[in-house]
Simulated scan of single mutants.
Amino acid sequence: MERLVSPAATRLQLVALTGPGTHVLVWGYVVTMAALALSSLDEVRSPWPTVHGVAIMVAVGVLLTLDRREPLGRATAVLVAIAWVAVALLVSWQLKEPGGHSQWFFGAGTVSLFFVGLRGRQLIAWLGFAALSAVVVVWAVSTGVSIPVVLVLVGKQSAILLVSSLFSFGLGRTSRSIVRLSEETSTRATIEAAQLATTAERNQRLAELDAIATPLLARLVGGQPLTAEDRLDFAVAEAQLRDGLRARALSVPDVADAARDARRRGVEVVLLDDLYPAEAPPEVLDVVRSRVVQALHSATDGRVVARLLPEGRDEVATILIDGERMQRRDVVLAG
């Protein structure tokens, strides 16, 4: 079955930096930097350090893509930081002159650490950037490159990482606000659902009470003398209302009709639900109701006691017929 994803879920996935949109962005950058690095091979003394550096960059892209944890796994973040320090050590002293695309690794490393910081590993990102910058500064000192020029380069790259820190901070606050609002909305929805369920239950009870009691009350206020038949109807109605309170799971039309007929025949009927508030599986409850109806139809005197048993037993219900002509105990098992 195809899984449907809402636009809101897609946007949140992108913000989390673990979605397809972010992966496309990461790999688009990897491909672009690989092209720039390979186009600068005439600016280095040996092409192989640059080629190996590109291979390490691809491996870093794979790590950032496969690790979907939030925050990013600590081991992954440390490996990314170490990888770019290694690339800087590998390529820097092969440069014929500073500047140009031959120093691609500094910008690529900073952007990788940008993603590391954005995914919750700010400290590792800044430590990695500090180590990467230290390599570049040492290279500049050892090769006679102007220190102010290198410091300006480091300052420009640090601005990228600073944006990561600021954005990560803002994103964290926004995420917490979204979670809080979501929890509040869920709580309100739960309360509203409970209120609706309570209202529906109350309306159903009132409808049942109206159907049972209103005709009888009309007889009482009518001023006519009460007959034995009227008194029997009152007793049967009272018992039916009591069933609705004590055995809600058994208060269905088939059982109610059978219980009313049995009571009019003089059978004492007791229905109990000691399983409440738990519920029996629907298929098991259907079996119980069916057997209760059969027992009520079979009884001609004495009493019938049908009881749903408390949770945690092998037996779900017992049905007892205790009369002069018939005595029987029926048990419904959970299985």
Rank of each mutant, 00 (worst) to 15 (best):
V87N: 01
G117R: 01
A75P: 04
G107K: 08
A75C: 06
G128L: 00
V137H: 06
I82G: 07
V80E: 00
S102W: 06
F106L: 14
L63T: 04
A108T: 09
K96C: 12
T76M: 03
A130K: 06
G99D: 12
F106G: 11
F106Y: 13
G109Q: 04
F115V: 10
W93S: 15
A125H: 03
L72I: 02
F114L: 12
E70I: 15
P98M: 11
L132M: 05
R68L: 12
A131S: 09
T110V: 11
P71G: 05
L66P: 09
L123Y: 08
V135M: 08
V135L: 06
W126M: 08
G99K: 06
V85G: 03
F129G: 09
V80F: 00
W126L: 11
Q94Y: 12
F129V: 03
V78Y: 05
A77Q: 02
L63G: 09
R74P: 08
A131W: 04
P71S: 05
W93N: 15
G109V: 03
R69K: 13
V137L: 12
A140M: 11
E70N: 14
V137E: 10
L113D: 00
W139Y: 15
E97G: 14
H101F: 11
I124Q: 08
H101M: 10
K96A: 14
S102G: 12
L90H: 11
A134T: 04
A83M: 00
V136T: 14
L79M: 08
L113A: 04
G73I: 01
S142H: 12
L89D: 08
K96Y: 11
V116M: 02
R74V: 13
V135N: 10
L63S: 11
G107D: 12
L63K: 13
V138E: 13
R119Y: 05
F105T: 06
L64W: 07
V78K: 08
V80G: 01
S92M: 13
F114T: 04
A131Y: 02
F115S: 05
P71Y: 06
S142D: 15
V91L: 13
A125W: 05
T76R: 03
I82A: 14
V91A: 11
A86F: 10
G99Q: 08
A134K: 02
V141F: 07
E70W: 15
L63R: 15
L89K: 10
A88D: 06
W139C: 08
V135S: 09
A131G: 02
R69M: 05
L90T: 13
T76V: 04
E97P: 10
L79F: 06
V62L: 12
L123A: 13
F106N: 14
G109D: 03
V138D: 14
F105D: 06
L118H: 09
A81L: 00
V91N: 12
F115H: 05
A134R: 02
L63Y: 09
A81N: 00
T76Q: 00
A134C: 01
V116S: 00
K96F: 11
V137S: 07
L66V: 15
A88L: 08
L90A: 13
F129W: 10
L113V: 01
A131N: 07
V137W: 09
V138L: 15
V78Q: 10
V91D: 10
G99F: 07
R68P: 03
V135R: 11
V138G: 07
G73T: 05
V116P: 00
R69Q: 12
F129L: 13
F114C: 09
V85K: 08
Q94E: 14
V116G: 00
L132A: 04
I82S: 06
A131T: 05
W93I: 07
S92T: 13
W126V: 07
